[in-house]
Write a protein that binds this DNA or RNA. Structure first.
Length: 307
DNA sequence: CACACGTCCTGGTAGC
DNA sequence: TGCTACCAGGACGTGT
């Protein structure tokens, strides 16, 4: 599943492969994939045609490509993407487009003026593309990683900074997390508190921190919160170094190559296998209509569990 | 039929 | 009372 490391891998790929290139036109194969573009598919195509890609930026799991604003050097719009569970952005060469059959889950094709294309492929269709206005950030710092512009796509203004963002106010995050009255994992997954963490890295980070997902946030001691945040940040950095996580070929990076961090997972998806630290058997619990994996010894369930 | 799950939305609560 | 922030859970969608 694309979480922060996978999205960052895609962002880096876009930065290296599509910046400076110009949109010729857009083919929307599945309207649902552009459902969050308010003007509909035709409007999206109209706002992209003729625009040049200026920068590839990411905050949490949100990714956007800044568009040039002809006649000015003040960009005011971006192509915004969220990959959902299975979204991919694939850079296609003109030669590829001529010979290869279209991917069965191709949802949107952004045709480029040089004959290539940027394809949005998404089997499970939780992802989406839109063209949106850019608005100033609340703190005046860059909107995300990949550009110095203090701008954010309007649909992402409520998304908090992520753990790899230099402008993250860590003290404020710790304070806000401890002020919550919920379970630790639920807080880590809340993108308005801290962004980029999904089910996989939440479980892996909590395992590193030796904390149970149901620990009540308002009873956590400050060092425990630091451990939880450090655990998530470390596991995401490790995954990023290996190009992201992949389980079932649903995720591939911008060139179509899969990551292989899944070989390094300690608990996620490892039910019944030994904990790499203590050997106890990893367990799976139902949690928020999804799964949580823990080591029952390293991460004992608290008596005052909260979900 | 259960399961994979990130985000949006709705209806609710707590506290000032 | 009204406001704000926060909280919980259902819905969405496709394919194995």
């Amino acid at each position: 599943m694309p979480e922060l490391p996978e999205v960052e891998t895609v962002r880096d790929g876009l930065a290296r492969h599509v910046l400076g290139r110009t949109v010729a036109g857009v083919d929307v194969h599945r309207d649902y994939s552009v459902r969050r573009h308010t003007g509909g598919p035709l409007d999206l195509a109209g706002r992209l045609a003729g625009r040049r890609f200026e920068a590839a930026v990411r905050r949490g799991k949100f990714l956007w490509v800044v568009l040039d604003a002809p006649g000015t050097d003040h960009p005011d719009a971006a192509l915004l993407a969220h990959l959902g569970m299975s979204g991919q952005l694939l850079v296609r060469s003109a030669a590829e487009l001529e010979q290869g059959a279209a991917h069965p889950h191709l949802r949107v094709r952004v045709r480029l003026s040089d004959g290539g294309a940027l394809d949005f492929v998404d089997q499970r269709t939780f992802g989406h593309l839109s063209v949106t206005d850019l608005v100033p950030t609340a703190d005046g710092a860059p909107g995300g990683l990949g550009s110095d512009l203090p701008l954010l796509p309007e649909p992402a203004v409520h998304i908090a900074r992520d753990l790899l963002d230099p402008a993250l106010d860590r003290e404020d995050l710790v304070r806000r997390l401890r002020a919550r009255r919920t379970g630790l994992k639920r807080a880590l997954l809340d993108q308005t508190l801290v962004s980029g963490i999904g089910n996989i890295y939440a479980d892996e980070g909590l395992w590193r921190a030796r904390l149970h997902y149901a620990r009540p946030t308002d009873t956590l001691r400050r060092p425990e919160v630091e451990r939880a945040l450090d655990g998530a940040a470390e596991v995401m950095r490790a995954a990023l170094a290996q190009g992201g996580t992949s389980f079932d070929a649903l995720y591939v990076n911008v060139n179509g190559q899969s990551g292989y961090f899944d070989r390094s997972l300690a608990v996620y998806g490892q039910v019944g296998r030994p904990c790499p630290r203590c050997g106890a058997l990893v367990r799976r619990d139902e949690f928020m209509n999804r799964s949580s994996f823990t080591c029952p010894v390293c991460q004992p369930r608290p008596r005052n569990a909260r979900f």
